[in-house]
Nucleic acid binder design. Structure first.
Length: 453
DNA sequence: TCTGGGGTCCTAGGACCC
DNA sequence: TCTGGGGTCCTAGGACCC
């Protein structure tokens, strides 16, 4: 067990079986744009500055971003628009529809600036990034100064306000960011690494446990019932108790709060393991024809995402649901997974599979509110192909086939091979022989709907 | 009348295999 | 009057995040 003192905090790096504590002496910064969507809108319309502003979700369904003035009125994230319409009128709240293209572009600008501060950046979401500050102490002897510099530069270059939290683990950096946002005296930057222990304890004991990253509504309520009401109480709870009661994830959160970094910086964005495309409808939908149109359009964009990350998928899932808020209506929701004969990223094939599934789960006489598709079994084309062959018992016997595939891989790139090999007689025949009947279900009779007009 | 969309990980239980 | 043990894979459900 080693001891690593940093500033006046004393941290113990605990050896944790199965928890995977990374090295000591990590320092993370979390940079987060305040009220991101609202701030983006303000950059392009300065008249919104210092006014109450809300950005609404798709179909203008509910609030997804709120200015501080709106938060002060008690309007919560996700509040349906119709529920605060009157309040909005009363307080002259400016209500905007969302513009995700704009927000994505602004996000890129911020992330580019952050890369100028650290070579190790993890883009965690559209409006926040973790930076590794390891080895930065000679450049920035006081991390707070770096935080202020980030705030100044991002504001100056993009017009967006950010807050910076600094801590010895990601969870503490998140907590620091929360403090930087909510305690005006911190002026937007909070460094827990150099904070004296007594002050840190004081902050943690006035922070509700639900504010801790990884503690949601459900577990928050359970912790509360068990007497763990603050971040400090969670930090000081016995790890074995946390594990027994809440599982490994919460045990890790406890360790992170004690300053033992268990979550590493993930700089490389891993390819998605599932890709979803779904929407709620503006109006209720009754017919298979309209549902088919939507599903076709969702699948088109999902397949685009799949190809953009150079993957293929093994199955598509399609789901539909009625409106659960309309209790007077008959309720129905269902989903079906349609396996593909071969891993693919071909839009037409995926659309056909989805429509085949949709037809199976569609029930007439209902009012549908939502539909969507999910691509599953996503992986690198070459790897999936190989694992399928092995799984079906032809692995060892088809060395030559493997060699041929590898050669094709080298020549055309991985995606090409998955599709091309589906067409080769030998591969196809072998697969057909080994497949279970469900894989050979024919959905070729489902008409192709052209999504790209 | 009107309630977002897109992800991740963990766990438990069943099927199946040797 | 008694029913192995260990492993993998798959799925569903529950929790969390933004």
């Amino acid at each position: 067990m080693g001891r690593c003192g940093r500033g006046s905090i004393t941290l113990r790096c605990v050896a944790m079986a199965g928890i995977g504590a990374t090295a000591c002496n990590q320092i993370f910064a979390l940079v987060d744009v305040n009220n991101f969507y609202v701030s983006c809108e303000r950059v392009f319309n300065p008249a919104l500055e210092n006014k109450p502003v809300v950005v609404l979700s798709n179909n203008d369904g509910c609030a997804v971003a709120r200015s501080n003035q709106v938060k002060a009125l008690g309007i919560k994230m996700g509040t349906p628009w119709f529920k605060f319409k009157d309040l909005a009128k009363e307080h002259n709240i400016i209500v905007l529809s969302s513009n995700y293209t704009l927000y994505g572009d602004m996000s890129d600008r911020v992330m580019t600036i952050l890369r100028g501060y650290s070579p190790n950046v993890e883009i965690y979401s559209i409006d926040e990034s973790f930076l590794s500050l390891n080895g930065m102490s000679s450049l920035w002897p006081a991390a707070v100064d770096m935080g202020q510099s980030i705030r100044y530069r991002v504001r100056k270059w993009t017009g967006l306000p950010v807050c910076v939290g600094i801590g010895p683990s990601k969870t503490l950096a998140k907590l620091a960011n929360h403090l930087a946002k909510t305690r005006p005296e911190m002026e937007g930057v909070c460094d827990l690494v150099s904070m004296p222990q007594a002050e840190l304890d004081a902050y943690l004991s006035t922070t509700e446990v639900g504010e801790v990253w990884g503690v949601g509504r459900r577990i928050g309520a359970h912790l509360d019932a068990a007497g763990i009401k603050t971040a400090k109480a969670l930090r000081d709870a016995p790890p074995s108790w946390l594990r027994a009661k809440f599982g490994v994830v919460m045990e890790r959160t406890g360790n992170e709060l004690r300053g033992a970094s268990c979550l590493a910086l993930e700089e490389i964005t891993a390819p998605r393991k599932q890709i979803v495309s779904s929407r709620s409808f503006g109006q209720l939908v009754h017919t298979l024809a309209v549902l088919s149109e939507s599903v076709t359009s969702y699948m088109t964009s999902a397949a685009e995402k799949l190809r953009r990350q150079r993957s293929v998928c093994e199955a598509v899932q399609v789901f539909i649901a009625t409106n659960p808020f309309r209790e007077q209506d008959a309720q129905y929701s269902n989903s079906i997974t349609v396996p593909l004969p071969n891993p693919s990223c071909d839009t037409r094939l995926l659309v056909r599979a989805a429509l085949f599934g949709l037809k199976k789960i569609y029930r007439p006489g209902l009012a549908y509110k939502k539909a969507g598709v999910m691509l599953t079994g996503i992986g690198d084309a070459g790897v999936i192909q190989r694992s399928l062959l092995v799984q079906h018992g032809v692995g060892e016997k088809s060395e030559k086939l493997m060699e041929a595939m590898d050669a094709l891989n080298r020549r055309f790139g991985r995606n090409t091979v998955a599709i091309a090999s589906a067409g080769t007689n030998r591969a196809w025949r072998m697969r057909r022989e080994c497949m279970s009947p469900c894989y050979t279900t024919s959905w070729n009779d489902v008409p192709i709907v052209h999504a790209d007009h």
